[in-house]
Amino acid sequence: MKDLMPLMGRVMGVMLREYMGQFCLVVALILIAAFATLRGTLFMRELVDVYIKPMIGVESPDFGPLAQALLRLALVYLAGLLCSYGYNLLMAVISQGTLKKIRIQLFSKMESLPIRYFDTTPHGDIMSVYTNDVDTLRQLIGQTIPQLVNSSVTIVITFISMVCLNIPLTVLTLCMVAVMLLAASKLGGRSSPSPAPPSPTRLY
């Protein structure tokens, strides 16, 4: 757990060196997409209060404002949709590109190692670096990182709206989150004991 952060940093480093621009774009697109989703959620509240209630019981209800609002929402949704498509496309390039880079780096590093290394390291271990370990990274880069960005955005937005709505309840929620994190780190720590698993092809 302790050396997780520098490790993540290293993977991110490889990724950012090559795809700095694209990654920033991805973050921006995720932000927009998240805002679009949020806008949609907020609209649900407005729908009843602002648009529907005033029309109830009116002789000849005017659906014009509602139509306009829905059209605006549709545009926001469209933007959100395009953004999320965009970042998914970009992520495909970034994650696979990073993996390609890591694979090539691994290989050329391996080629430069002295023969002693090959004599003393089980060949299965070297093989499994390329197969299992790089595959795990694929999961990390392709899914975990976008999720991380996405979730952090959501957390920040939710937190801000929570603070706006009710401060004591927010504090209570934060305490519960702390308990949850504690439990999660305990459980997470248990699934990866500190000494490396002994078998060359490890399950994860």
Partner: peptide, 10 residues
């Protein structure tokens, strides 16, 4: 392959 799958989401 992943670009194709990215289409799924939108």
């Amino acid at each position: 392959a992943e670009k194709l799958e990215a289409l799924n989401m939108p």
